[in-house]
């Protein structure tokens, strides 16, 4: 099988998986199931592409699907603040930065020697088995669905209280803030290091 065909097969199987799980979700659990299936396909599919894809940049783009899928889970669970924070920080910030770095690499499809035949075949085989089992309804029980798709009702008010109330998340909040500050200061320090500090070996990172 040529590289191109293998790639096509992979994406076809991925699409079948996605449509299959979405259809099954719709049939068994209505809109909630449909949503869950879509987000699950996004998350897992993005992750699969990220691992499998030979081009580093494509892998990075596939991460976007994963991040969005995870955000979708948060939405289903009714925590829309978390979902939007996930999108804002991971898609808008982290992924953009990641791409900024990754794009400097050559657009060479053969430069990565990650999973070639073994992993891909295993993935496809597993995927097909999973799909068949799902569609026929044998073996695998469905996950328990969230009771309802609740209308998200997060208000700034509640978030503010949750972050600053000593009984709730103030410790986590402060810890995260502290961590980020340390990271920021460290980044500034690294960026401002002088030429003399570097030995030639260090330069060849």
């Amino acid at each position: 099988m040529s590289e191109l065909n293998r790639q096509r097969l992979f994406y076809t199987v991925l699409a079948f998986l996605a449509f299959g799980s979405a259809g099954k979700g719709l049939l068994e659990a209505g809109v909630e199931g449909l949503m869950f299936s879509i987000f699950a396909s996004l998350t897992l599919g993005g992750a699969a592409v990220c691992i499998w894809e030979r081009s580093v940049v494509r892998s990075a783009f596939a991460l976007m699907a994963t991040f969005l899928g995870v955000a979708g889970f948060f939405l289903i669970l009714g925590s829309d603040f978390l979902a939007m924070a996930q999108v804002l920080i991971y898609v808008g910030g982290v992924l953009a930065l990641l791409l900024f770095g990754v794009m400097l690499t050559k657009p060479d499809l053969n430069e990565r020697s990650l999973p070639r035949i073994g992993a891909a075949t295993a993935l496809i085989g597993g995927g097909i088995a999973f799909l068949v089992s799902q569609m026929v309804g044998v073996g695998v029980k469905t996950w328990a669905m969230a009771e309802t798709l609740e209308e998200p009702t997060t208000k700034a008010h509640d978030i503010g209280i949750a972050f600053l109330d000593p009984k709730q998340y103030v410790v986590a909040f402060e810890l995260a803030a502290f961590l980020l500050t340390v990271a920021l200061v460290a980044a500034v320090y690294i960026a401002r290091r002088r030429t003399e500090d570097f030995t030639p070996e260090e330069g060849q990172v």
């Binding site: 030429t195 570097f198 030639p200 330069g203 990172v205």
Partner: peptide
């Protein structure tokens, strides 16, 4: 690859910038 002080550049704003680490 070899970092050297020659790669130091004076920016228009008068700051000194270094190109060496990557």
């Amino acid at each position: 690859i070899q970092p050297s002080s020659e790669e130091e550049r004076i920016l228009p704003s008068g700051e000194r910038e270094f190109f060496f680490d990557v």
